[in-house]
Design a protein around this nucleic acid. Structure first.
Lengths: 338, 338
DNA sequence: TATATTTGTTTAATCGATTAACCAAAAGTA
DNA sequence: TACTTTTGGTTAATCGATTAAACAAATATA
């Protein structure tokens, strides 16, 4: 058990030089002779030297840590975004700290505090469903730390954002359903206060109008989009005197809940009611019938969010124009809608 | 934009006292008067003081960070374990850094290096499928950092472990299948080198023998247990001249792959072949037919792993006896086996 | 030869919080 | 009164790495 870690001093002592020289040698400073560098690196290896990250971060004022906040990690979309983000950031010498809000505003605030406390160099986040109060995000900005939002963003918050074109996605879905002959299309959406869900709702309404289809209030529902919630909302739609012949659900999880209920009630999908989800979670292709959904290019989103962060820290730009990156989505047509 | 963070010095200047006094006041040192403490806390709040974690960690030699390594986060089991672990550790003042190995040995080694580099106070890990070489884990131990393994552990590594009784779980499954009238039970298992999979295989074999059922070599398959792998292996079993009437798969993901193939080939589950998975992932109850599986008490595992870590750091025990915690599992019977 | 430049390194300050050691003033005790 | 103890701080060192500034020796230039 080697109790103590090797420090610069230990190496310096062995070679009878200063710690400054050792530090510079390890960092390949031009002013250190090749001979010394070799010797230092040799000894460093022998003593199994590992730099003290805390000390270096303290001194340099940079922790080389990026905080990530996601609603949850056990969704394929988020875990996939994070994975791709991690790849890009690791390559640039950054490590990431993943935290989950579990869709809770309180937890999200805690996470932000924690990340600030850990002195992260930046925060990449996707907001919880509950979040309306943006003061904690303002706090990040006022701390001078780069903040990049993805997927779940906010219009009022003037920060960089990476996401897909939700408005256009709704259009694609409605076009597809219309092409399948649907005449009465319902939408189980998220809460309007969240930008992406608002855009999906707007897209739905505009597309419906464009095709001169009925857009009764009863066909548009705002919800929390959990699986359980999907179950509840579809029941409401089924209870209508004038049932829809298609339902576009703004989340795959809620769509799955809806599908469960439809199957329990022996309503044929897609024959009687067509169903479309959102997010292209893996299970959409696994259930019976498989669920038509929108693919969000998670890998791409992760990469772009990471790149945006890096663009802030790599070059020390003071005032950089805001990036709002909107990717095109893709409709994956499966059994539930054809 | 407040460029600079508030430091102890800033507070000290306002009150014309020493930074030492400020530090002690904030930490409720007994030698500081109530009056001073109040004043300090007041100013700290006004200036929005946030302690510099890096400095404090450097000085105290403790980062209050716990590193977590999981094969992947987008599995319900792992994300659930992590969530419960996080709750316990946060309460004790620790933050966690989540890293994923993606079942890759190389990535796992990198993760360990990263965590050591970040000076975590402990590491809680579940090993990648690929991992055979334990030298990196030895490295953690030789750095004097507590290491706790869960689920995917190793017998050779003499460290704390939290998991379920895999051997007994296999027995429960076989008992159940036998009770359902199965006479020829196959097992798609993991690689024997991994402790848990080895135990599941041993349990399978012993239970089969106990019931005087055939235990041909062709009925026992070792695999990587991915979804795709489940597809491949079930095909092998279906190609046998003497097909099994039940298949026990050591992972829900692989079981799902198997189920897909069975459905594609129009083989009725459970009528022609009964199927049992392992892990009780949420999708097991969502697919048709729903899949019988073993619940692993993920919340409990996370809590116990965290507690074990805390038992090391809270009290400064030098030599503590090793904890090997084995929980009972639960068989969740669903449509695929009845 | 005298001076300027380059090379290679050392010294010392610094990042911010903590803490061992020290000290002055107030309060208690003989 | 004289001495001890307690109270409430202050000083200064420290954690380990980095870096601006200083400096000696070697080399180049005039």
């Amino acid at each position: 058990m080697n109790k103590k870690r090797t420090t610069l001093k230990d190496i310096a002592n062995v070679l009878s030089i200063s710690t400054a020289a050792v530090s510079k040698a390890l960092n390949d400073d031009a002013r250190i002779s090749v001979k010394t560098k070799k010797a230092v690196k040799q000894v460093a290896k022998e003593l199994n030297y590992q730099p003290n990250h805390l000390a270096s971060a303290l001194r340099k004022g940079k922790s080389k840590l990026v905080g990530v906040i996601v609603p949850r990690t056990n969704s394929h979309f988020f875990s996939s975004v994070v994975e791709s983000m991690e790849g890009v950031l690791n390559k640039a010498g950054y490590n990431i700290i993943i935290t989950q809000s579990n869709e809770s505003f309180e937890k999200e605030c805690n996470n932000i505090d924690t990340l600030l406390y850990l002195q992260v160099d930046g925060i990449i986040a996707s907001m919880a469903n509950e979040t309306v109060d943006l003061s904690f995000y303002e706090k990040i900005k006022s701390n001078g730390i780069p903040l990049i939002l993805f997927d779940r963003g906010e219009n009022d918050l003037n920060v960089d954002y990476v996401g897909i074109n939700d408005y256009a996605s709704s259009h694609m879905i409605i076009e597809h359903l219309v092409a399948q002959g649907c005449k009465r299309i319902a939408h189980i959406g998220g809460y309007r206060r969240t930008r992406i869900f608002n855009n999906r709702i707007r897209g739905y309404i505009d597309a419906i109008k464009k095709h001169d289809l009925p857009h009764d209030d009863e066909l548009l529902i705002e919800s929390s989009l959990t699986l359980e919630d999907g179950r509840q909302q579809i029941k409401k739609l089924l209870a209508l005197k004038n049932r829809p012949d298609a339902v576009y659900v703004a989340s795959d999880y809620a769509a799955l809940g809806a599908l469960q209920v439809l199957k329990e009630k022996n309503i044929k999908v897609p024959e009687e009611i067509k169903l479309v989800g959102f997010g292209n979670e893996p299970f959409t292709s696994l259930v019976t019938p498989s669920i038509t959904s929108i693919s969000q290019h998670s890998k791409q989103i992760g990469k772009l969010a990471a790149d945006t962060f890096l663009s802030y820290v790599e070059k020390d730009v003071v005032e950089q124009s805001l990036n709002k990156i909107i990717l095109d989505s893709e409709l994956i047509i499966r059994d539930s809608s054809k």
